[in-house]
Structure formats: structure tokens, C-alpha cells
Design a protein around this nucleic acid. Structure first.
Lengths: 202, 202
DNA sequence: GGTTTGACAGACCAACTAGTTTGTTATTTA
DNA sequence: TAAATAACAAACTAGTTGGTCTGTCAAACC
């Protein structure tokens, strides 16, 4: 199967997933319209329901095949190479801060958006989403455990608790920016987050 | 106009607002169905569109007349009587923790829910919501300023930043619980939040 | 006490939306 | 190469949803 083939089912499926991910990011799953995805991809109902059995199945696929890899690549994998959690985490957040533009500030975190909207509404969504949070949490918690083992992190901090708190704080900050629509709120809260992280040093 | 009158327009309007608030809390504004509100209130289209010009107008009224007073009474007003921010804040969070039940843990914070869903979608919602956050922020920031004036809070902390961070952290924690569906995440992150708040003492 | 007006009831409508069905064509397979 | 199948196209459907319209009755007003 050549890349220039008139019919490239894998690519077609991926295009649907990518557009759906973007639409969910902008409007939420409930605001996602199958017709709108088809309009953007220039596909038809026939194509869509050939690849996905329902809108819900699309939602599941977006979580498993787009959202999860996105989070894992961007936030989970890097944590596994952390040696000095405090230093590396601040570096990570600094880089993320520089990469953020107004659009992202406005749309927020795709994982948290979906969590807030869908967790209470659809158990099949909730379990998929929770698994992703747990991956993140475990990697962050493990980083602090290693930090304690190497004597860089205070022995009295509880990695599990700190990981929960840091993820919550980061997502909370991003969430606040969605309504303020500027990055001052991000930097103001970010300064305190940095202070807190630094307070974990041994 | 007696309270037992067959027609009590003020009560009718309030019933619609209360049910709509609850429905939005459970399903979001996009998931809110006018028909469902009418079913629950046992009213009709005639009644609804007599009191509200549109679903959007209902949304605005819910924010202004239900959500805002709810936040102000529960989270803003108490802050104005804070003398020792660290002590009073921890007391406030302890009480809130005890009041929380599984249902609330599952539905999350009504203000944050609406923020995450509607801020990017409807500017008229965003400005109303932002004003409520700002009330909360200002009251919390002012409490820390008073705490500094009375020497209870470290002079190097920036009340504005701390207020932003604390609100973000609290909402982030509540948001995390929505997917985990248990209160351990709440307590784990809460322990760190308490540590941070205590670190602000002079 | 008659009139006006506010507060509804409920049938109705048009647009939307997820999903179906039937048909067509490219691609693979025997 | 011919048959089978995968990958679509597109018209269609049934149910939903916000909103309208006409009518009715209670309550205020004169």
C-alpha cells in the first residue's frame, strides 16, 4: 500500500482521530459533532462508521490512541529520566511555560478537560482517563522516591502525596488560566509552585 | 401574593434556576436539557420561556443568581473575617473536608466545572465566571495582606501569588477526585496543601 | 364587576444529530 | 484475471432539542 494510494485506511482513521481530538479539546466531547469532523476531514458518514462503530467508540479511540500517547510522551516518559526531581521538574515546567501560547492557555489541558467533563457522565471514559492519570502519578512519585534514595529530597516527604499534590496544582493553575485568558495568573501561581517544589529539597 | 397561590412566579423562576443549577452540575451546560428541567419541575415550555428568553439566558441567570451567591456565601464571605490566615484556612478546609460526601466528590466544584467547559466556548459566560473567581481571589489575597500586617504571615510571601496558587491547588485537588472517585487522593494531596499553607507562617 | 395583564399549558416546528442503508469503486486475494 | 472484500460516498431516518405560537385562567387593576 503506497502512501499516495487513493484509499489509505490507516491514514483516514488517523485523520479522523486527530481532528476529533482537536474538536474535543475545543468544545468537549459533548460538543463534538461527528458531522463537523467529517466536514473538516472531507469524509462522509460511510467512511466514519466504517472505522468507528459509534461516537462513543471514537471517544475511546481518541483517549487510547491520541490522548494517552500525548501525555505519556510529554509528561510521563521524561519523568523516568529524572535524577534530581526538584531541579529537573523546575526545568520541565520552565520549558513548558515557554512553549505555551495563548491558544493552549485558552484550551487548557486535554486530559483534565476530558476528566472534568466526562468522569461523572460515562464510566467507560472515566476508567480510561484514570489509567492515564495513574501513569503520570506513578512516574512522578517514583522520581521522588529515587530523589530520596539519592539524598536529594527530604526524607520526611511522602512521594505519593507530593505527586498527587503537584499534578493537582499544575492542572489547577492551567484551569484557572482558561477563564482569565492571560498568562499572569500562570506566572503568579507558578512562582508559588516553584517555591513549594524547592522546599522539597533535602 | 400568598405563598400558597396557584401561581407564584418568583417561586417558579427560582425552582427552574435551582434545578438547572443541579443539572449543570451533573451534566454540564452543554448537557443541560431544557426539557429535562421542565420534566423535573413539572412545568412546561410556556412557563420556561415566560421567565427566560433562551437557554443561554438561563445559564446566565444560574451563574448570577445561584452560583455566585453560593460561592460568595461559602468561600468569599468567611475569608473576610480571617484574622490568622494559616490557622483559619486550615480550619476552613478541615470543615469542608468533613462536609464533603461521595456525591460532591464525584460532581466537583460547580464554579470550576463551568469554567473548564464554558470559558473557551462563550465569552458571555467567561466574563461572568471570571468575576466570581476574582471575588474569591481578592478576598483571599486581602486575608494574607492582613496576616502580614499583623505579623502572622511571612513578609516575603506575595499575597496575590499565594491566593492564585491556593485557589488553583484546591480546585486542582477537587478535580483530581472526580476521576479517582475516592477521597484518598483528596487527603493525600490535602496533606501537602496543609504543609504549604503552614509554611507561610511568620 | 369587568377589563387588562401576567403566568402559565401544551401543541407544534424547524434544525440538528447520531446512526443506517444502499450503492460504488479501489484494492487485495485466489 | 476474476471474484471477494475493504473503503469509502451519499441519501435517508428516527429521535432529539431549543424555541414558537396560540390559547387559557388567575390575579391585579380600575
Amino acid at each position: 500500500m503506497s502512501a499516495t494510494a487513493l484509499r489509505n485506511p490507516d491514514l483516514t482513521r488517523q485523520r479522523i482521530l486527530d481532528v476529533a481530538f482537536e474538536e474535543i479539546l475545543l468544545k468537549g466531547y459533548q460538543g463534538l459533532r461527528v458531522d463537523q469532523v467529517l466536514k473538516i476531514t472531507a469524509l462522509t458518514k460511510g467512511a466514519f462508521y466504517h472505522h468507528f462503530s459509534s461516537k462513543q467508540a471514537l471517544g475511546h479511540a481518541v483517549i487510547d490512541e491520541v490522548l494517552k500517547p500525548w501525555i505519556v510522551d510529554k509528561w510521563v516518559k521524561p519523568l523516568k529520566q529524572f535524577n534530581d526531581p526538584v531541579k529537573d521538574l523546575i526545568e520541565m515546567l520552565t520549558v513548558a511555560r515557554q512553549e505555551i501560547n495563548m491558544t493552549e492557555l485558552h484550551t487548557g489541558c486535554p486530559l483534565n478537560n476530558l476528566t472534568q467533563e466526562m468522569s461523572p457522565l460515562d464510566e467507560s471514559f472515566r476508567v480510561r482517563i484514570t489509567a492515564i492519570w495513574q501513569l503520570w502519578h506513578d512516574a512522578l512519585s517514583a522520581a521522588f522516591e529515587r530523589g530520596q534514595a539519592s539524598g536529594l529530597i527530604r526524607q520526611d516527604v511522602i512521594p505519593n502525596n507530593v505527586a498527587r499534590f503537584l499534578i493537582a496544582a499544575m492542572e489547577g493553575i492551567i484551569g484557572q488560566c482558561k477563564c482569565y485568558m492571560n498568562d499572569t495568573a500562570f506566572d503568579e501561581a507558578g512562582a508559588c509552585l516553584k517555591d513549594y517544589i524547592e522546599s522539597l529539597s533535602a
